[in-house]
Structures are given as structure tokens and as C-alpha cells.
Amino acid sequence: MVNLSVALCGIPLENPIIPASGTFGFGYEFAELYDINCLGTFSMKGTTAQPRFGNPAPRIAECPQGMLNAVGLQNPGVEKVISEELPKLKACFRKPVMANVSGFSEEEYVQVCQALDAQEQVGWLEINISCPNVHGGGMSFGTSPEAAARVTRAVRAVTRKPLLIKLSPNVTDIVSIARVCQEAGADGLSLINTLLGMRIDPRTRRPVLANETGGLSGPAILPVAVRMVYQVYKAVSIPIVGMGGVSCARDVIELMLAGATAVQVGAQNLVDPLACPRIIEELPAEMEKYGIKDLNEIIGGAHKWEKM
């Protein structure tokens, strides 16, 4: 028997598999397809203070080994998440859930975190300072170390729940941002969010997405995620939730070797709705293949080969 269980910021996870925010809604679509209690946890749809419609359509584009999305943080707003989504979720999910928070100002992040901090079902707060599809918010907080530190400090002050900061890969030096988030009180880091991309349709000679640009996800970005998790692991002592292009158990092991304590699965849920239970099922055999008895042994395992 192998051990799949890990702990993320002090909360045990039966296994490290976590569907990523924005690819899993509030859980029910998937609860119709399988018992979502098999998951480590899942990260809920990014939540803002006010309801948001998001961007005009088209919001989705095909890419080689991946996809672009420019949904633009469509969500019902934190009040409805608390009054409607969380009670509905209680009926199909009995584990602590990860709440994903977005905002357009420091005050908004604080307001949403305060409201979610009071919810017993919420295990972790994951602060998205890396959404590439909104203007004047999201990624603008995650691309400057000063702004990232300010948001982290502000939300740290209003919650005692484990605080994860979700980082953008669209930066010159992700390590410096990771460092300031740790210094500002983050309990962990989630990385990576999507990479900013674009497609143009030769037939119409126009951008495919109405928003022109969107976030690239899918297997195409796995190597970028592995590299960034590896670099950040070297620089921080707080746990990392790794994500980006994960589609199979092998990818999970790779990200954990790079330094991830847990692993989120994003775009793959959309094309293969049973991806997460399949990965969880595949993990023990995949671990045995590589002589792994306990996943905890391999977290950051690739670093022991570093040159002194």
C-alpha cells in the first residue's frame, strides 16, 4: 500500500488532487458525474464582492495542446456564494473547500476574505492576484512585488484560515513575488495561473476571443509550471500548490518532485470531466512504477540533484 495523503497548511488531504478554480464551478456539475468526496479538495469559482457577468463571447479558443479562456471572473458575488452556493455544496461535499478570491482593489480582496473567513466549510483562502482576463484588477496585483505584498498583508490581517496566494506566470521573476508574499504572511503559494496568449482567425482576420487576449492552459504549459514551482521551492519555505497542464498521474509526480505539496488540475476537467478521479485511481500504480511509497517523500525531491 502506498500513501497518497498529504497535509496542506495543516489541513490533511486524503490525496493531493485539487480541481483548479474556474474549471470546476461550485462542484455540482461534477457531483452529477462522480462522488466529488474522492478529491483532496477543490478550489471554487473565483469570487468577487459584486456579481460579475464577465467578458463578452467568444471566451474560449482552441490551442495546440491547450486552450485560451477569457471568461473574466464571471461569478454570483460573495453574498450569493455564501447564501446559495455553499449550502448547496454541503449536500454533496463534506470536506473543507478552498475558496478562491479575486478583486479590483485591496478593499475588495479584504471584504471578500472577511466574508469567507466566517464560513466553516471554507478550509483555505486562495487569493487570485493573477487573473489575466480583467482590466484594472487581477493580474495587476500579481505582477508587482509591492502590490502583491500589500494585498497579502491586507488579507492576512482579516483571516486566520490558511492563506494561499495564487501567482501569475506573466512576470519576469516569479521568485521575487513568491518571496514577498511569504514575508507578507502567506501560508502557501498556488502556481501557476494561465499564461497570457492570443489567437487570430485567418478567415475573419480578427482575434478569436472578444477580449482579444486570454489565459493559456492545458498540457502546453506543464513545463512552465514545473520550472516555476522548482524555482519558487528553492526560495521559500511555505508549501506550494502546483498547477499548470496536469493531465495524468505522471504529471502530478513531476510537479511534486519540483516542489509541490498538492497539485491542482485545471483545463483537463473541461475536456475530460472524469480526469480527477482517474488521476487519483492511477496514482498508486504510477507511484509503484517509480518506487514511491509515500508522496510526502517526493515533495521537492528533484532538488537533491542541484549543484552545491
Binding site: G22, G25, G54, A57, Q74, N269, L270
Partner: peptide, 10 residues
């Protein structure tokens, strides 16, 4: 996705 998860077609 086609099944309501991603909000891509709202």
C-alpha cells in the same frame, strides 16, 4: 466544456 463548468459560453 459543454457541461456547465467553465462559464465559457454564458
Amino acid at each position: 466544456c459543454g457541461f456547465g463548468a467553465c462559464m465559457g459560453c454564458t
